[in-house]
Each structure stands twice: as structure tokens, then as C-alpha cells.
Design a protein around this nucleic acid. Structure first.
Lengths: 207, 207
DNA sequence: CCTAACTTGTGAAGTATTTCACAAGTCGAC
DNA sequence: GTCGACTTGTGAAATACTTCACAAGTTAGG
């Protein structure tokens, strides 16, 4: 299969969100134009994105909302659940652990880790905070799919190395550092500082 | 000036971070190759990115670390400070308000807002949580530069409308919805769900 | 002063992504 | 069944972004 652009995958997620809205409102069909308007793109873009995976629409009518939603869930791999471990039991880790959207989409937090004596052992929403040094052993048993790094920048690379050794195949990184990892590990970065600086640039170079 | 790509601006932020590292370690110069390695890009890309704004390097030698850092701060608009209001005093808002990197880069949180009686009036890190309905009046006086939306998805668009009316020119949106706003307002989205689904896709479609 | 080893800045070439534009299918009304 | 109003799927064109490749400048060493 031809490689799918990152930007395409992001848009597919957006489309799925709109489809779920539409589903909730009982709409039977939706056109590429409708999806485009909500996703701030064009109808041609929507159709092209979908065309990488097949033809799901009906000419003259649009797409069946439940059918397309189902296909997108399938494409995005959301039909199965994914297990997640959160590393870093600070404010961000805590906000993440209780985030509704997490479980809502099939991502189940199975463990929280930290390195600080003060936090290890405390109970959080039914989960006991574990010692980070047990990650490798735990992972061999529990085989989590995704690790979320919610530590300060200084410790992030060390944690990433540990995750790699533990054989966890995907990382969502909230620490403001560029991680060095073997290429077979999938990484996504969420970097608030970068976004803020992007706004700063936009405000500075207006017009 | 030619329009600068978003991806370029993101990389500039990354370069600045590496330069600050280098500065701290006392390096006098740095080459495009060094910057590239840390930013997971190529040296040509680094040079091209910088060339949009002038020529700062010296052939055979590289870039002066403090000089380039200064120029990047200037380009990104980080020489002045920016005032920020956070809307939504829940877990995410709270994690943001105390985020070090925020103030570190000249973004000062001047107010926190919420709509819930329970939260309004409580004090947070020296800031009293204000009633969201006072945003427009407050903003007319205090003229914040950036509003951060840290509310649940349901309330985000309403909050965004209020921000637009208040004349705040930039928004950092953490709610998992696509906001509709007049084009003169700069918006950046941080959407965890999207990133997770991107990982789900990557794990599902490996090789 | 000359050479070797670097490194920048930048057109040109190469890829990737988005938009255009239109043939072809679908539906509902009459 | 025919018409008019829609809408998809998709090559082709346009645009955007990245990488190549090299002339030209800089430095250190002898």
C-alpha cells in the first residue's frame, strides 16, 4: 500500500469525529462538502483522503454516516482497544489519566509510573503509582501498546530508552525534547511550547 | 515577505531550543549539520529555513550560537513578553497554569476563568479564578495577547466566540473540537485524541 | 602563501500534497 | 422515462516543501 501522509491521517481522525456527531444527530448520509466545511478543508481533499482506502460513497448522495464511521474506525485501528501506560505522575500525567476522551476511544490506562518516592505507592483513580524501575519487567508481562511520557524534559530521554528496552512499540511524548529512538518505535510529540511560539510568530508577523 | 510555512516555524522553535542548550554548554559556534542532527532533519533544511530571514552564518565556520539564538528569538517574537489567559480551571487548565516552560519563555498567565460556581473565586497560585462572563470587560482593560481554551469540548465554541468578541488575537485550543473563528484570529490546536489515533494507525498499519 | 577540510547560501531538481475539473452515477419530481 | 440538481472518484495541473549539489568563503597547519 502507498504510504499515507501524516496530514491525511490527522484529517481522517477529524472526519471520524464529525461523523460521530452526525451519527448522534441521526443523519443517514453526509457529503464530502459537509465534512470539508467542518474540517476547514475542501471537498476534493476529503474525497482524495478517502480514496486512498477505497470508494465508500455513492454518487449523487454522499457517504452513509454509519458505514463511513465504521470504515474509518477500521482504518485508524480503533476497532480494537489499546493499553496505555503513563510515565510521570505529576500534574500533566494526572490530567491525562483522568481525561475522558482517552477511554472513550478505546485507550485504557493500565498503569502509572514515577521515579519519586513520594508518589510511588499512592493510589490514583484506582491505579497504584508504580516505580519506574519496574517498567521493563511489568511490560514483559502486560505488553502495553503505548507509553505516554509526561515527565520533565530532563528525564524524558532516559524514560524513552527504558520504554525502548521494554519493547513498547509507540510513544506519545509530552516532554519538550526531541527523543532519539530506534525507527521502529512510533512517536508523536505534543509540544505546547512549540505551539505557543507559533502563535508568538503569527502575532509578530501579522499581515 | 514570502509566506513562511508552518513546518518551518516549528523547526525554528526547535533550533532555538538546541541553541539554548549549546549556549548553556558554552559553545561559541554551531553548524547546520549539528542543528540538523538534533532536530531530525537535514543540514540543507536548516540552512533553507534560516535563509528565509537572512544570512546569519559564516562559511567554513557555522553560526555564532548567541547571535543565531538572538535572531531566532527576534523572528519568533520572543523578545517581548506575551500575556495569557487560561479558560477552564479543571485539571488541564491547572496543569497549564503551573507549567514552567510557560513563563520561562515569556508567556505570563494573567488570569484564569471558569464558568462553575464551585471554582470561581478560588485562588490558584496567586490568581483568583474569575467568572467567564467578565472576560470581555476584563479584556478591554487588560488586553491579553493569547487565550488558552482548556474546557470540555461542549463549551469550547461558546468560549471561542466570547474570546473573539473580547478582541483577543490568538487562541491555543486544547479542546478536541475544530473551532470556527474569523480568519484574523490565530489558532493552534493541541489535540491529544488526534495524536493517539495517529499512533493507533501507525501500530495498525506497520510495515 | 598554499592546501585541505569545513561550512554556508542558494538555484535547480525532485517529491509530496493539494486543488481543479469533469465524466459518470444517483435521486426525486413530473 | 426524462430532466435537473447533486455528488463521487480521479487523472492532470498547480502548488508547496525538501533535498541535491556546488560555487564561494573561512580557518588551521605547515
Amino acid at each position: 500500500m502507498k504510504r499515507i501522509a501524516d496530514s491525511t491521517v490527522r484529517r481522517l481522525s477529524l472526519y471520524l469525529r464529525f461523523l460521530e456527531d452526525a451519527e448522534a444527530r441521526g443523519l443517514a448520509t453526509i457529503s464530502s462538502g459537509d465534512l470539508a466545511k467542518k474540517g476547514a478543508t475542501t471537498s476534493a481533499q476529503v474525497r482524495k483522503d478517502l480514496s486512498f482506502f477505497g470508494s465508500f460513497g455513492k454518487r449523487g448522495l454522499g457517504y452513509s454516516v454509519p458505514e463511513l464511521a465504521g470504515r474509518l474506525r477500521q482504518i485508524l485501528g480503533l476497532e480494537r482497544g489499546w493499553s496505555v501506560v503513563i510515565i510521570g505522575a505529576g500534574k500533566i500525567g494526572s490530567a491525562l489519566a483522568q481525561y475522558r476522551g482517552f477511554r472513550q476511544r478505546g485507550f485504557t490506562v493500565i498503569a502509572v509510573y514515577d521515579s519519586s518516592r513520594d508518589r510511588i505507592g499512592s493510589v490514583w483513580d484506582g491505579l497504584t503509582v508504580r516505580d519506574i524501575t519496574t517498567l521493563e519487567d511489568d511490560a514483559a508481562r502486560e505488553r502495553p501498546d503505548i507509553a505516554v511520557i509526561a515527565t520533565p524534559g530532563e528525564s524524558a530521554q532516559g524514560v524513552a530508552d527504558r520504554i525502548a528496552r521494554a519493547g513498547i512499540p509507540a510513544i506519545l511524548n509530552f516532554a519538550p525534547v526531541q527523543l532519539e529512538l530506534p525507527p521502529e518505535i512510533a512517536v508523536k510529540n505534543v509540544n505546547m511550547a512549540l505551539e505557543l511560539e507559533g502563535l508568538s510568530f503569527a502575532l509578530t508577523n501579522r499581515d
